[in-house]
Design a protein around this nucleic acid. Structure first.
Lengths: 329, 329
DNA sequence: ACCATCTGTGTAACCGGTTACATGACAGGT
DNA sequence: ACCTGTCATGTAACCGGTTACACAGATGGT
């Protein structure tokens, strides 16, 4: 037996569908007697409104689409948690779509959202600005997160990688380091690129010696980078890895080589993964859940027609621990 | 300007809406000439079908609802990742709803899914079987995960806590331990309860001495439990904590007390959080992503009318590391 | 020449809600 | 007695798709 519809309720309560609808939505012009008759019928039939039909006629779904790349671990759950917090506070549901494939897949995923959601949070590194503009239904409010878009186009939020990298360099210089090495992230990753550029800037500004070596965000590449530096006889006294994974690899390689952290070499990472706290790793904390929450707040503002647009930077925070400062907890 | 509808396309291509619909859905009885005219109109207008309207008339949304309690970290992202893997493989989207509040809220969340999704994966510890039966629209396929339901009712999947706990006890006895202490989880948590019961059973079966002390799944409670045992002068040589967090707290407390792991005391946990590997903690790995994937596979089978129902146990796996076996990696 | 069949397309009902507008009953004012 | 306004409710159009059915024109067999 299929679920009851509003017409079944109307029949059972001996009123019209319009009256049922009014009674259920709490409109004022319904007599008390009718209201109870409707409520009784609803209970007897176990009627639950059909959200799909409702959103079609209201042109409003109370759902927000979230399109994310195939992220792993921490980042994914934290950003979704943050969004969910705000969404459920405002009575919205989240419709999730992970992008596995490449461009073609991504376009389909975006289009599948049309008519299901009131707005879209998009994080799609594989799509360029024009691809996005073309794939997104024009009338659908959208907010881009960490996408390679600069000015113009859609409203957006970016992680402020430069601020994070600057903070790390400032700190390393403050604790007296003279030769900083940066282990970069993979080519083509925009966050990694921004961190590296900012590192270079900050070192130049401080007039401190520095060097940049390649990495790919894995623990192994962090360890490998250190081993190579040591083989080459470099005289560095500080490492800033583009993410925590590589910093952790670096820590292990340094210890294997018999070097002391932070006495001989200070080490800092980026992200503040849970492990960082346990290892006493200085790093840049990205409040990912907050980023997600903020994204949703702005998107809802856009949906409500109250967002000025433009790009917003999400500031991260330096967390100093024992890997750069012996006196830290 | 609102997004184009199928009628706009029809007008532009000088055909009827029925023809547009047929052309777009690839039905065979459309002439090639018409098909191209429609395709042109679609491109020119940037038309994207309205998924909401489509699902209303097809009575099929290609979306699966996921209702989870307010989980944190690892568990949440892993189970969603697993579900998403299977969902996107089969062309489904996930509609997410986190349960924050209590019963009343939970019922509303479940009902909000009606008419939006083709099926529901529910993990709702705060709802009892009758609550669920009442809150779920009868015609909506649903799969319960780790919910306090035994036989009957809806199809379900449970984590096999007993198998995990048995494996731990077997292992501890095998490595020669004589006095096992179990740090239990919070009251009212069904997983914790099952682990504790299984621990007691297994110890009884092995005729080994044991003791059960309270905990609440936090690191602090694990450390606290150890401190109390030491103060009381207990002679235990193995700890099995109901989750990894408490096991980690226990490790730290033991080390602070100058005891060696595993020589003096072996320690095991449950969950296999990422940190466990780094700390060399023996634990029970719950392949959460696999659990999520399996849940979705079954739910889709139910939707397709091909699932026999019944309860299914998801087997975890013992991972032996240095905290119970010095020879382990 | 005629009927059956097939092909491509249009018309309109339907999915399950919301809501503008129409209606009928009743009260109050003159 | 009549007009006006208010209130509770019903009727039907609409949201944007899908699809059963009708139909016109072409094809082919007799």
């Amino acid at each position: 037996m299929p679920d009851a519809t509003i017409r079944d309720v109307a029949r059972r309560a001996h009123v019209s569908v319009a009256t049922v609808s009014r009674a259920l939505n709490g409109l004022d012009n319904v007599s008390d007697q009718t209201r109870t008759r409707v409520a009784d019928a609803v209970r007897e039939l176990g009627y639950v409104p059909h959200a799909g039909a409702r959103s079609l006629s209201l042109a409003r779904s109370n759902a927000i689409g979230v399109v994310l790349p195939d992220l792993y671990g921490e980042f994914f759950s934290e950003i979704v948690r943050g969004m969910d917090r705000e969404a459920s506070r405002c009575g919205y549901l989240l419709l999730l779509s992970n992008l596995h494939g490449r461009k073609q897949q991504a376009v389909l995923a975006l289009q599948a959202m049309r008519g299901r959601v009131d707005g879209l949070v998009v994080m799609a590194p594989q799509l360029s600005e024009p691809d996005l503009a073309q794939a997104l239904p024009a009338a659908l409010p959208a907010l881009l997160v960490n996408t390679r878009t600069k000015d113009g186009g859609r409203p957006s939020i970016h992680l402020d990688n430069a601020a994070g990298a600057h903070a790390v360099v400032d700190h390393l210089v403050n604790v007296g380091r003279k030769y900083l090495v940066h282990i970069a992230g993979p080519d083509g990753n925009i966050d990694a690129q921004e961190r590296t550029d900012a590192f270079r800037d900050a070192c130049t500004r401080h007039r401190v010696r520095f060097e940049i070596v390649p990495g790919d965000f894995t623990e192994e590449s962090g360890a490998g980078a250190i081993e190579k530096l040591l083989r080459d006889g470099r005289a560095f006294d500080a490492i800033f890895a583009s993410n925590d994974n590589m910093a952790i690899g670096a820590l292990q390689a340094l210890r294997s080589a018999g070097l002391c952290v932070p006495q001989d070499v200070a080490v800092a990472g980026f992200d503040d993964v849970p492990l960082a706290k346990h290892l006493g790793l200085t790093t840049v904390r990205v409040r990912i859940a907050e980023l997600g929450e903020r994204a949703l707040v702005r998107l809802l503002a856009i949906v409500g027609g109250e967002d000025g647009g433009g790009d917003e930077l999400h500031a991260p925070e330096l967390v100093v621990r024992a890997s750069t400062d012996q006196s830290a907890a």
